[in-house]
Write a protein that binds this DNA or RNA. Sequence first.
RNA 1: GGCCCCAUCGUCUAACAGUUAGGACAGCUUUCUUUCAAGAAGCAAAUAGGGGUGCGACUCCCCUUGGGGCUGCCA
Length: 481
Amino acid sequence: MSNQIRVRIAPSPTGPLHIGLARTALFNLLFARKNKGTFILRIEDTDLERSDPKFEEDIKDSFNWLEIIWDEFYKQSERIGVYKKYLQKLLDEGKAFWCYHTVEELKKESEEQMARREAPRHICEHKYKNAQIDQKGIIRLKVDENATRVIHFNDLIRGTIEWKENLIGDLSLAKNLETPLYNFAVVIDDYETKISHIIRGEDHISNTPKQILIQEALEIEKPQYAHLPLILGPDRTKLSKRHGAESVKEYKEQGYIPEAMINFMALMGWRPGKIEIKGEKPEDIYSIEELSALFDLKDVQKSPAVFDIKKLNWMNAYYIHQLTPEQFRTTIMPFITNNLEIDGVKDEYLEKIRHMMTERMEKLSDAADFDYFFKEPEYKRELLNWKNTPAEAIKKSLNLTKEALEPVDWNIFDKDYIKIKLDEIAKTEFAGDRGAVYWPLRVALTGRETSPDPVDILEVLSKEEVIKRLDKAINKINLNI
RNA sequence: GGCCCCAUCGUCUAACAGUUAGGACAGCUUUCUUUCAAGAAGCAAAUAGGGGUGCGACUCCCCUUGGGGCUGCCA
């Protein structure tokens, strides 16, 4: 009699948390938050063979990382007694029965049916005998293969979905009283935990009529259903390893940040319905709070969404730009190898470094490209070359730069002044070709051909360090190494 | 094979039957410029096809085609 909104995400611990399941979890969470409901995590580990506690840990870790936090937690393996009770009830009432067919027989049956262009389904003659229990066989639900009824349910996203009852067959419920199978366990758990809305992937549409049959046999209430469109790879098939990363953990390891993942996942198959007030933020950028406020099942798409890594990258870059200095320290720094000098960097400089880096980063792992802020770079001598400028001229440029910088007091670092001095060198020595001055300086400081403005880099390095790197470059030219 | 679901730019999508079919990402161009980004400006890009029903169809109906999913004693 309660109107409480209760939703769940029900992963099976048979692999790392898949991006598709994470997105389903997110939609459930958003729906719960929007409607002040409860979001439940249920581990579906009835298949002991395939389940592994390490995956349960991965799933929880990944959800925690994404900040998809559950309000209640259940685990099917801890609820065996519950299923047994309902199983026994169905058996006692004659609604379920023991089936003794072998898998070979079942396979043959379905192959023959397919050959006859019929829907494959098991029509079990054991349901007519009053078979008694022995150690073999599995428990099935009696389903009328001659039924003329069309099962229909209202999908909150797709409208009415119909299914002919006679196409279903005597569906499996449990391997034995202690080992429930998916469809049965789901129905029991959803009922017992008072799930109001089942929001799950489209791949579960065909399970729905089966679960409805079980609900009817049990004479229990039916929840509302909403089937989300699937996430497809660029080739428009179900997202999988072939398409690159598919687990949340992999995205974490590759340097994506949770806010970007959440934002991106939310927009796969959904979009805010109303045109809300545009703030300073770019189009399509939403925080989890905004998503929670905006979410509505009626705005969920029916057709599958192709995973577009380019858009994810763009979002990730956006969120990296927004990183606070504190987040920068804790999340970006670990991606820089040999990160030992960081503690010695003044906060003021770290802030400037943060700007220079985040403007150029797409993933956290890109931070490794900026290691020159913290350690002397290694590079090949040729990199110092600027266009056709001869080696002697490059050397001269470096020397003049060094001379210009030596008198500078780093404590009152004046970027404009330095620029004027460097531009002067370009003007008097290189016919105004500033590249002849800035390029060798850039390489001397960074060992790379792409970097922020060398003058900006100068500022955050100590004068000693700058002179040292300049000397090293000059030396490289002298020794031609 | 059977059943189910789906169909607007390359991708994600907007458009209570009436819009020059809009935006974002990606792409391209220009700008800035010592490199790379970021930023600014701009360009190109779609209603799968065929029938209906409407004065009027992206929008409603049917067919075709295409795509996806399911078809376990997995979940």
